[in-house]
Design a protein around this nucleic acid. Structure first.
Length: 245
DNA sequence: CACCAGGCCGTGC
DNA sequence: GCACGGCATGGT
């Protein structure tokens, strides 16, 4: 099955990547990564982990496709999608930015935060700022970047950033509850953070697209129906519904 | 002009 | 416990 790197990298899991002339570029791990295909990533230890190359996504995809006709259509409408393994802080801020927002604008906010508070890793390429680098940020500054009502949420996350290192080892429900003690993190944002940075595959983010999927195709089902592939099924359904419009 | 986007918070009941 | 209005910004 053909890898769909574009959907994995630009489909709303991460806002770090840009694509130009078939090359995907991101600043991660204090380094500028440029890749055309996954084979460019396999030999790099950081990217191996980031792309979760130790997990058999092809097998999971086959299992999902066999579940029902809708999932089969969703899976077959796109190539192979992976679940990225991002760092906790970047994911937390990314998905706080995502609320009541769209992917294009989230990506722009992410870049502006990087340019204002991150550091220049290579000429013109800025890292996403750490919580420490954002320690002096003010609400006024953040609003000036266009974060709007999310500005105070970001400041609360800066203050509570150490919490993100206490999540591993907790049950899924306790992880959800812990993340939601940060302002601006509700059930949807928390589940995205858990999937895309803690590799919790039982997460099932319910955004406006997924509410539409569930209402139209699974009116009598709950996320448990998709077990044990909740997160990956959700990602395929999300991608499918968004491409259908 | 309206309505929407990978929602959540505060308030009221 | 659930329903509802408000919320910054930029695109359609």
């Amino acid at each position: 099955m053909e890898e769909n790197l574009r959907e994995t990298l630009l489909g709303g899991q991460s806002f770090s990547w840009r694509e130009e002339d078939g090359v995907f570029t991101a600043v991660l791990n204090d380094h500028v990564y440029r890749i055309r295909t996954l084979s460019d990533a396999a030999s790099d230890p950081f990217l191996y982990d980031y792309f979760d190359l130790g997990y058999d996504y092809a097998a999971a995809r086959e299992a999902i496709a066999k579940k029902d006709d809708i999932l089969r259509e969703a899976v077959e409408s796109t190539g192979l999608i992976r679940l990225l393994h991002q760092d906790h802080w970047t994911a937390a801020i990314s998905f706080i930015l995502s609320q009541n927002n769209n992917i294009k604008r989230i990506t722009g906010l992410y870049r502006r935060l990087s340019e204002k508070y991150g550091h220049e890793v290579e000429k013109g390429y800025f890292s996403f700022p750490t919580a420490e680098e954002m320690a002096g940020a003010t609400e006024e500054e953040l609003r000036a970047l266009g974060t709007g009502f999310r500005a105070p949420f970001i400041l609360d996350a800066v203050k509570k950033a150490p919490l993100l290192d206490t999540i591993d080892g907790l049950s899924f429900d306790d992880s959800m509850a812990a993340l939601q003690t940060i302002k601006g993190i509700g059930p949807k944002v928390a589940s995205c953070i858990l999937i895309f940075s803690y590799q919790r595959r039982e997460g099932f983010p319910m955004d406006v697209w997924m509410k539409k999927v569930m209402r139209e195709y699974y009116p009598d089902k709950t996320p448990e129906y998709f077990h044990p592939y909740e997160a990956l099924s959700q990602q395929y359904l999300f991608s499918w519904m968004r491409s259908k419009g």
